[in-house]
Amino acid sequence: MLSWLKSDPRKKLQKAYEQRLKDAMLAQRSGDIKTYSLLTEEAEGIYQQIKALEADSSR
């Protein structure tokens, strides 16, 4: 009935994904390669979650 009020989990994940990539880029620019690799790995995990949600919604 009120499904239009529910937040879209993909939007939240997309925002987190973009933020991790931005933080990773800034870490790389400052020379902190360890933090860059950790943030990139986290972003990849979030991306996999987004793809899983998209696959579930297309069924």
Rank of each mutant, 00 (worst) to 15 (best):
residue 57 S to C: 08
residue 44 E to R: 09
residue 47 Y to M: 11
residue 4 W to I: 15
residue 9 P to D: 05
residue 5 L to N: 00
residue 13 L to R: 03
residue 58 S to F: 10
residue 45 G to M: 01
residue 5 L to M: 04
residue 19 Q to S: 09
residue 56 D to L: 12
residue 54 E to D: 10
residue 19 Q to T: 05
residue 43 A to Y: 03
residue 27 A to P: 05
residue 59 R to W: 02
residue 42 E to P: 06
residue 32 D to W: 13
residue 4 W to L: 13
residue 38 L to M: 10
residue 7 S to V: 10
residue 48 Q to M: 09
residue 51 K to N: 05
residue 46 I to H: 00
residue 42 E to N: 09
residue 57 S to P: 07
residue 40 T to D: 02
residue 43 A to W: 02
residue 58 S to A: 11
residue 34 K to F: 14
residue 16 A to K: 15
residue 40 T to K: 14
residue 6 K to T: 07
residue 41 E to N: 14
residue 57 S to R: 11
residue 3 S to N: 14
residue 53 L to I: 07
residue 41 E to K: 15
residue 22 K to W: 07
residue 53 L to T: 12
residue 22 K to C: 04
residue 43 A to K: 06
residue 34 K to V: 14
residue 54 E to T: 10
residue 37 S to W: 09
residue 23 D to T: 00
residue 33 I to G: 01
residue 2 L to Y: 14
residue 26 L to M: 15
residue 47 Y to L: 09
residue 12 K to G: 11
residue 11 K to G: 01
residue 16 A to I: 10
residue 29 R to S: 01
residue 9 P to W: 02
residue 27 A to V: 00
residue 24 A to L: 03
residue 23 D to M: 02
residue 27 A to D: 03
residue 29 R to C: 03
residue 10 R to F: 07
residue 8 D to C: 04
residue 36 Y to P: 04
residue 38 L to N: 10
residue 55 A to D: 01
residue 53 L to A: 05
residue 19 Q to N: 08
residue 8 D to E: 06
residue 12 K to S: 13
residue 19 Q to H: 08
residue 52 A to D: 03
residue 42 E to C: 09
residue 52 A to S: 07
residue 59 R to V: 11
residue 43 A to G: 00
residue 22 K to A: 05
residue 20 R to N: 05
residue 33 I to Q: 09
residue 45 G to A: 05
residue 18 E to N: 12
residue 13 L to E: 02
residue 31 G to D: 00
